[in-house]
Amino acid sequence: MASDYSTASSSGLVDIAAGEWNEALIRELGFSLAQMPVLAAHNETVGRIAGPTGGANRASVAPALGDGVSASLACRGISPACANLGTSTAVRRIAGSLPAVADDVFWRFRFDRDCFVYGAISANGCAVIDWAQEVLAPQRNGSLPSTDTPLTADQSLPLFLPWVNGELFPYWSDSPRGILWGITAGLGAEALKIAVQQGVAFTVARMIEQVCSQSPEIGMVVVGGGVIILVTPCPEGVSVQHRSDIPRLGYGPYDTVRTAVEDGELTNLAVAAHLVHGGESMGRGVTVMLVSTGISEQEAKQLNFLHASTVADALTVARGIVGASADTVVLQHGGELLPEVTPETDRNV
């Protein structure tokens, strides 16, 4: 008998940090380790089943993975965190380490030998919307009636806190109660419906914020001395609003930008923050190359970037800097992602 780590973790009998059965607790309950399933990863073969004719044609058997953790695994290629909105709602994150918070804040499982899943769960997901439909439209087969007075852009909606089922994260208590605040005489069912939906959305957003706040701050995904190649069309060229400041100063380390601000050379602090953020790599000895049809070679140099006409040309130059054996990481939509690269997998290019 075998179990994947996440399913076994939900029993409460696994030492999650160690990735092993908690022998002391198991013995306290009157059982032994010999009675526990073998712990294995969800994609690890733990046995084989012979086909109807026997022989070598046999099917591999692996431990089943739970639905929630499966959702996290499926979303991992896009983001290490994902939210599932159903009768309840949950936010899960796969990470290489557990957050340094009290055990009663997040629920946590071991995902496999190397990773963990932790997150938050609320008892007030779509079940709250179903409840509102029954209360507001009992004679309409669950369909909420429209208000006689359509909503306007400036109409104030009531505030709805959706704790009608108590609340799990972060209170883990039946005591919290739902609140509907700000009702007026002219309020219609449509406004109430929107308020309920916003309340549920608030719960999801709050859990996402709390779970993601436990991630270590992630800045660069390249080690010092490496190369970053930016591939972007930039049809508008350099910043439309700040075209005079950004090319004039270029991206650079914090000290350089700070001097420009103190000397009065740069007065727009939003631009200063942008230059520091974009130039963070410069202070770590990282070379940045730009492949863009919208920014000329001269403009790239003004930004303190190297210019390349094609990705192939950029890779040739990069390998000349860091060596032909350097590893390459490709981040699609890199400007929209928050990739997590552990020290063991840091790359040079």
Rank of each mutant, 00 (worst) to 15 (best):
V46P: 00
L315W: 07
A326W: 05
A272T: 12
G237F: 07
T328Q: 09
G12M: 10
T152A: 04
V105S: 01
Y118E: 09
S244W: 03
V261E: 07
R258L: 14
G225A: 10
N141V: 10
K193P: 00
G294Y: 09
Q241H: 12
G334M: 05
R27G: 04
V261W: 08
S143P: 00
L338W: 11
S11G: 02
G12I: 07
I183T: 09
F111Q: 08
D245M: 06
R140L: 14
D255P: 03
G54S: 13
N43K: 11
V105Y: 12
L33K: 13
Q198M: 15
A41M: 02
N268H: 05
L338I: 10
N124M: 00
S72K: 08
S156T: 15
E23R: 15
A71D: 14
V221I: 15
Q133V: 02
L249N: 04
T287Y: 03
Q214P: 03
I218L: 15
I129R: 09
A100Q: 13
T203A: 15
S32F: 01
E209I: 01
T87I: 15
D255N: 10
L306S: 08
Q35R: 09
A326E: 02
G320Y: 06
R58G: 13
E297A: 15
F160S: 09
I321R: 14
P63Y: 01
D112P: 04
Y118K: 03
R248H: 11
T287F: 04
A314H: 09
S296T: 13
I321C: 06
P99I: 05
L315N: 06
V231W: 05
G224Q: 06
H333C: 13
S11M: 03
A50G: 15
V329L: 14
A185R: 02
A191K: 05
Q197S: 10
A260L: 13
L157I: 04
H307V: 00
G264R: 08
L98V: 12
G86Q: 07
S156D: 13
P138H: 02
G66S: 11
G224F: 06
I94M: 12
T147F: 05
G294P: 06
W107E: 06
R108A: 11
G252V: 04
G142E: 09
P80N: 12
P233I: 03
G186D: 14
I208G: 05
G320E: 11
E344I: 02
G125R: 00
V349Y: 06
V349Q: 10
G51Y: 12
T256R: 11
P150C: 07
L161Y: 09
V204E: 07
G178M: 05
Q210G: 01
S60Y: 02
D327I: 01
V286A: 10
S88Y: 08
T53G: 14
Q155F: 05
P63H: 02
L73E: 14
M1Y: 03
Y254G: 02
V38N: 00
F111M: 03
M282W: 04
Y5W: 01
D327V: 03
R258G: 01
I208E: 15
A71R: 14
E190H: 06
P80E: 07
I246E: 02
D67Y: 07
A205E: 14
P176R: 01
Q35P: 02
L161C: 09
R347Y: 10
Q197T: 07
N268F: 07
Q139K: 14
R58M: 14
P247Q: 01
I94F: 11
T259K: 13
W21E: 00
L306I: 04
Q214C: 13
I295M: 01
R76T: 06
D255A: 12
D67W: 13
